[in-house]
């Protein structure tokens, strides 16, 4: 199945893009997708990165075809 992944902050820089369409095995959970992308892009401090699935901040869901997953790092500039 395909899911759309969006990257924010320094994660977008590590990925070299702000968005991509990924093919993942059906039944993949949000946390499994996160682990995979953390390894792929060598994302630092992964436990601080929050996921939003279909605009809801929640890491604990199983993904479905067409879902949109946002990767949000904390940042603090001001």
């Amino acid at each position: 199945m395909k899911v759309t992944v969006k990257y924010f902050g320094m994660i977008a820089e590590l990925a070299g893009k702000t968005e991509e369409l990924l093919e993942v095995p059906s039944g993949t959970s949000a946390i499994e997708l996160k682990d995979r992308q953390v390894r792929r892009y060598q994302i630092q401090d992964p436990e601080s990165v929050q996921l939003a699935v279909n605009q809801n901040l929640d890491n604990k869901v199983e993904l479905n075809e067409g879902d949109e997953v946002a990767f949000l790092p904390p940042f603090a500039g001001g």
């Binding site: 320094m10 630092q44 401090d45 601080s48 901040l57 790092p73 904390p74 940042f75 603090a76 001001g78």
Partner: peptide
């Protein structure tokens, strides 16, 4: 609730 865990990467403007 948004960020229960923080990061060491405190990058300022």
């Amino acid at each position: 609730c948004l960020f229960p865990k923080t990061t060491r990467q405190n990058i300022s403007c």
